[in-house]
Simulated scan of single mutants.
Amino acid sequence: MYTVKINFEQKGLDPVILTNIESDQSLLEVCLDNNIELHHNCGAVCACSTCHLYVNKGTELIEEISDKEEDFIDRAVNPRIESRLGCQCILLSGNGGGEIEVTLPDQTQFLGE
Rank of each mutant, 00 (worst) to 15 (best):
S23M: 06
K5S: 11
L32E: 15
S49D: 02
S26I: 01
I21V: 10
G12S: 05
L53I: 07
E60S: 11
V55S: 06
V30W: 01
I62S: 03
D14N: 07
L53H: 07
K5N: 12
K57S: 08
N34C: 10
E63F: 04
I21Y: 00
P15E: 02
L38D: 06
N56V: 11
L28A: 10
Q25M: 10
Y54R: 14
G12H: 03
I21T: 10
E60M: 05
I65V: 13
I62N: 01
I21K: 09
S49H: 07
N41K: 11
V16Y: 00
L38C: 13
D14H: 15
I65L: 10
L27V: 13
Q25G: 03
L32R: 12
E9P: 00
H39L: 14
L13I: 11
T3W: 02
V16C: 03
T19H: 06
N20T: 11
L61T: 08
L18R: 14
E9Y: 05
C31Q: 12
N41Y: 08
C42S: 09
I62R: 05
P15M: 02
C42W: 01
N20A: 14
A47W: 00
Q25F: 04
G43S: 06
L18C: 08
T50E: 00
Q10H: 12
E63Y: 04
V16A: 04
L38V: 12
D33I: 15
C48F: 01
I36H: 14
E64I: 02
C31H: 06
K5A: 10
H39P: 09
L38I: 11
E63H: 13
S23P: 14
L27E: 07
V30E: 00
E29M: 15
H52G: 00
I62M: 07
E63K: 15
N34E: 04
G43T: 00
Q25C: 08
V45K: 10
L61Q: 01
E63V: 02
G12L: 06
Q25T: 14
C51K: 04
Q25I: 12
G43Q: 02
C42F: 01
H39Y: 10
E29G: 09
V4L: 04
N34I: 13
